[in-house]
Simulated assay, not measured.
Amino acid sequence: MSILILPRGRCGPSTCITRYLVSMAVTDLLVVIAALLLNPISGIYVPVTFLSTTAACSISTVLIYSCRDCSVWLTVAFTFDRFVAICCQNMKTNYCTGKTACMVICSVFTLGTLKNIPWYFVYEPVYVIDQVPWFCRIKLGFYASFAWTGFDWFDCLLKPTIPFLMILLLNAVTVRNIMAASRARRRLWRHSNGKSETDPEMESQRKSIILHFIISGNFIILWTTYVVNVVYVRITDGSYFIGFDFKDPKFILEESGSMLPLLSCCINTCIYAVTQAKFRQELKNVLKQPLYFIVKLVNK
């Protein structure tokens, strides 16, 4: 519904913000399809299909990692765009445009896909039946190879360590500038118009800022467990949990770190409906369209 409603341009945000929100909605939907529907759910309820072949399993892994990377870096791009709009007035006119947003979004999708292609070559078949390789397991050489170890570190830095730190830093600087600008504008507005009136421009900025901080805050909260688990494994020079003790703290930490980022992708689209009154109204209008169509048919 977000993908259908937001491009109509009736929800308030500028073209630039709208394109980022639509692209984030698309990637979040792809994450849900690839990481939940095609992978674990199909594996549990339909355990042996063409998706169980080694080639399909490897492609599925590349698709899942690519979608998650794009979702993460689009959140960073959206945060940086709002940082420029609020803190860098000299760059705002040239950077915060629909054209720039399209270029950034296309770059994120392209680089996110190319970066994850090596994951296709990490897996080997578990069984070979009638010359058809089935299921996937990580090659033993992955753990012993210096190149693959370096790639694994590179992947951990790009998702989500660097994005996590960038969003924290950008938000901290943005908050400082917002507070300073708000105090100055409030004093000027009260001096000119009296204490009882509200500044419409500040009210519009406030709604945009609330949307920005909820999206980035959602990312930080739900990716924290994943970051803690990655850092723990790297610092202790240990390994990821392999076993069946569901009460083991390492198992709980790792599985929570895997689940919460997927939840992050589901929550973003709900945020639009919660924070944007115009979006809620457009959603009602869209849902009413089939009813209007049915009423016209009955009348005819």
Rank of each mutant, 00 (worst) to 15 (best):
E255A: 13
I294R: 13
A277N: 12
A273T: 06
K284A: 14
R280F: 00
S258R: 11
M259W: 10
V228L: 11
M259V: 14
M202N: 05
G243Q: 04
R280P: 06
T225M: 04
P249D: 02
T225Q: 05
S264I: 02
W223E: 09
Q289F: 05
S256A: 14
R280N: 06
K288S: 14
K288R: 14
T236F: 10
Y226L: 10
F213Y: 02
G238C: 12
R234T: 09
I294G: 00
I214A: 07
P261L: 12
P249Y: 01
V227H: 01
F213M: 04
S192Q: 15
T224H: 01
E254L: 05
D237T: 03
Y272I: 10
I271S: 06
Q276F: 01
L283C: 09
Q281C: 13
K250N: 13
L262E: 10
V286R: 12
G243W: 05
G238W: 06
I209C: 02
K296N: 14
I294S: 09
V295G: 03
G194W: 05
I214D: 00
H191N: 13
N268K: 14
I221M: 07
H212K: 00
D248I: 00
S208F: 02
A273C: 11
S239P: 00
F219I: 00
I235M: 10
V233F: 03
T225A: 09
D199R: 05
T198R: 14
S264A: 15
I235T: 09
D245A: 08
F246Q: 02
C266E: 09
G217W: 01
S256N: 04
